Computed example of a mutant assay.
Amino acid sequence: MLCAAYKSIKKVDTYLYVSNKDDFSKVPEALLKAFGTPQFVMSVPVDKREHIAQIPKSEFVAKLQEQGFYLQMPPTSASLLKMHLQQQSQQQ
């Protein structure tokens, strides 16, 4: 099984995976608008990998089949303010 990976021109480290290259028919219009014009990155051989888009292959395939696409977002970084406040409360 192959799927196509695209990067966003609007959102850093955000990728969209679809089952067939250039077939965005199952991707909601609002998501495509926020994502921007998808830029093709590569075809991904799903069967040859244990993890895809930083998740287990089984979870990735299930999402792809269920939704018709998979959106990979960048990991969230901890809020610096929240970390600072936690450190302050620990010091008191």
Score class of each variant (00 low, 15 high):
residue 85 L to W: 10
residue 86 Q to V: 06
residue 5 A to V: 14
residue 88 Q to D: 10
residue 91 Q to C: 08
residue 43 S to Q: 13
residue 43 S to R: 06
residue 47 D to N: 07
residue 8 S to M: 04
residue 52 I to C: 05
residue 70 Y to D: 00
residue 9 I to K: 00
residue 44 V to S: 04
residue 9 I to L: 04
residue 57 K to R: 15
residue 82 K to I: 08
residue 81 L to F: 11
residue 41 V to C: 07
residue 85 L to R: 02
residue 62 A to R: 13
residue 69 F to I: 01
residue 60 F to V: 00
residue 23 D to W: 03
residue 17 Y to F: 15
residue 38 P to F: 05
residue 1 M to F: 11
residue 69 F to H: 00
residue 52 I to T: 00
residue 59 E to A: 11
residue 22 D to S: 03
residue 52 I to F: 12
residue 91 Q to T: 08
residue 45 P to E: 14
residue 21 K to D: 14
residue 10 K to M: 09
residue 88 Q to C: 11
residue 41 V to F: 08
residue 50 E to D: 14
residue 31 L to F: 12
residue 9 I to H: 02
residue 85 L to Y: 13
residue 37 T to P: 04
residue 83 M to N: 06
residue 77 S to F: 07
residue 64 L to A: 04
residue 89 S to V: 09
residue 41 V to W: 05
residue 26 K to E: 11
residue 25 S to C: 12
residue 82 K to S: 15
residue 68 G to F: 10
residue 2 L to K: 09
residue 44 V to G: 05
residue 7 K to Q: 08
residue 53 A to Q: 03
residue 73 M to E: 12
residue 28 P to M: 05
residue 22 D to P: 02
residue 38 P to S: 07
residue 73 M to V: 13
residue 62 A to I: 11
residue 44 V to K: 04
residue 5 A to M: 13
residue 23 D to A: 06
residue 49 R to K: 12
residue 5 A to Q: 08
residue 56 P to Y: 08
residue 44 V to I: 14
residue 26 K to S: 07
residue 65 Q to R: 11
residue 28 P to R: 02
residue 58 S to M: 09
residue 86 Q to K: 04
residue 73 M to N: 12
residue 27 V to Q: 01
residue 65 Q to A: 07
residue 70 Y to M: 01
residue 24 F to D: 00
residue 51 H to Q: 11
residue 27 V to K: 00
residue 79 S to W: 04
residue 23 D to N: 10
residue 7 K to Y: 10
residue 55 I to C: 03
residue 79 S to K: 05
residue 68 G to P: 02
residue 27 V to R: 00
residue 75 P to V: 08
residue 91 Q to D: 07
residue 21 K to V: 11
residue 6 Y to S: 01
residue 86 Q to A: 13
residue 17 Y to C: 04
residue 43 S to N: 09
residue 91 Q to V: 03
residue 12 V to L: 08
residue 64 L to I: 04
residue 57 K to D: 12
residue 8 S to P: 03
residue 21 K to Y: 07
residue 65 Q to C: 04
residue 7 K to F: 07
residue 90 Q to D: 12
residue 84 H to Y: 14
residue 80 L to I: 08
residue 51 H to Y: 09
residue 23 D to T: 01
residue 61 V to L: 06
residue 22 D to T: 01
residue 68 G to M: 10
residue 2 L to N: 02
residue 64 L to D: 02
residue 64 L to E: 08
residue 14 T to V: 15
residue 4 A to G: 09
residue 89 S to L: 13
residue 82 K to D: 06
residue 28 P to N: 06
residue 33 K to A: 13
residue 84 H to K: 04
residue 79 S to N: 13
residue 36 G to K: 10
residue 43 S to G: 12
residue 60 F to P: 00
residue 50 E to F: 06
residue 50 E to W: 09
residue 84 H to V: 12
residue 90 Q to P: 01
residue 68 G to Y: 15
residue 49 R to Q: 15
residue 14 T to Y: 12
residue 5 A to I: 07
residue 75 P to I: 09
residue 56 P to R: 10
residue 74 P to L: 06
residue 79 S to R: 09
